[in-house]
Design a protein around this nucleic acid. Structure first.
Lengths: 196, 196
DNA sequence: CAATTATTCAAATGTTCGTTTGAATTTTAA
DNA sequence: TTAAAATTCAAACGAACATTTGAATAATTG
């Protein structure tokens, strides 16, 4: 029971840090800022975390691990490739909607990781992109997807979805489901009107 | 003739700053870093620029002004709305390919603008988004575009294209024209295979 | 209860930052 | 050539930063 308390404080530091980093950037956020938001003295925080760098590292790698785990799960499912791809796009939208701050940090502030972590993070990222790319390749070969350049398709999908983290909030006129469906429609059916 | 020299130095500071800000972020770039890259002492730079903030401001507003000017031009052309939209998407891709560093700064580091500039920048941004949104609205009403949520379409288009700045380089297997065409195909026709 | 351990924070450390100063040097123009 | 203006840079400024120290206080445990 008592063990938890330290854990909880640590997590609340991480959460607030993610929110602040998203808002003001890693470089623009001071430990004093953060401490104030969490409601402790800056020095006190160091009983729960070991450094500012560690916070960034934790946030980035937690998100990376979610993406990689989910990719592995979707990869081994027995469904058409286009459905795998759609599931992955939904995953991205969903994560941004539910873990917006953390995803934002992993997307935008990873470049402030220390040299070693930076290399490792880039590695994970490239690993994930390769997996996704393979799904696209297979989808094209199976005739489920248009024969467009694989890399362009990959990055366009990944990118198309990134605004969600900045814009979508629950109860702002559009539900998460509707959001996912609309984006999937645009990306897979196209924005141009089809003949009736 | 002599007037130009100061101008040229100033511009080379701006260019190198954009490259550095893109690479390490505004907060992660020091004036001493920048000075070294430009080949002068940090103090010397202050004869050409007035502050680090001014550099950021110049880069951000130069880009904003390009976008807004081009939007106005495309708006008044006499073409179908879907073509206007395509032209705007091409504009984004083109700018990222040719002015990658500056666009990256305007996209990612604008949040470090000082309070007043920040407000003005957000204003320009929202003005641009409103203009683009209107084109989408008209396109849907004219039956040229699928009837999807307007805001979702707007942000998906703007976002889908942003990876170009990070990834595309000339002579890396795909030409700028091919890149534009492929992205337009995905966004307007969809990635899913159509029946023959 | 006492003893141990965890938690707090005021104060200080050393570093890096953006920017200024002032004197020296180079360039320009008369 | 000489006076004025532009350009350079070593040195220094004060501010902000991440982090540590050490002593005080609170919570836990035997």
């Amino acid at each position: 029971m008592t063990k938890k308390k330290k854990e909880i404080r640590r997590e609340s530091i991480m959460e607030e840090a993610a929110r602040l980093f998203k808002q003001k950037g890693f470089g623009g956020t001071s430990m004093r800022d953060l401490a104030e938001r969490v409601g402790m003295d800056a020095a006190t925080m160091y009983h729960y975390i070991s450094s500012k760098d560690e916070i960034l590292k934790t946030i980035c790698f937690d998100i990376a691990s979610i993406y990689i785990t989910q990719l592995a799960e979707i990869e081994k499912a027995n469904t058409p490739f286009i459905d795998k791809l759609k599931a992955l796009v939904r995953l991205h939208i969903h994560l941004m909607a539910t873990k917006g701050a953390e995803v934002s940090v992993a997307n935008n502030d990873w470049k402030y990781l220390a040299t070693e972590s930076l290399a490792e993070f880039k590695d994970l990222r490239s690993q994930y992109e390769k997996g996704l790319s393979k799904v696209i390749e297979q989808g094209i070969q199976a005739g489920e997807l248009e024969e467009v350049n694989q890399s362009v398709a990959l990055f366009t999908l990944l990118s198309a979805v990134r605004w969600v983290e900045l814009w979508w909030r629950p109860n702002r006129g559009i539900s998460l489901e509707e959001l996912e469906d609309t984006i999937l429609t645009i990306l897979f059916n196209g924005l141009g009107k089809k003949e009736a």
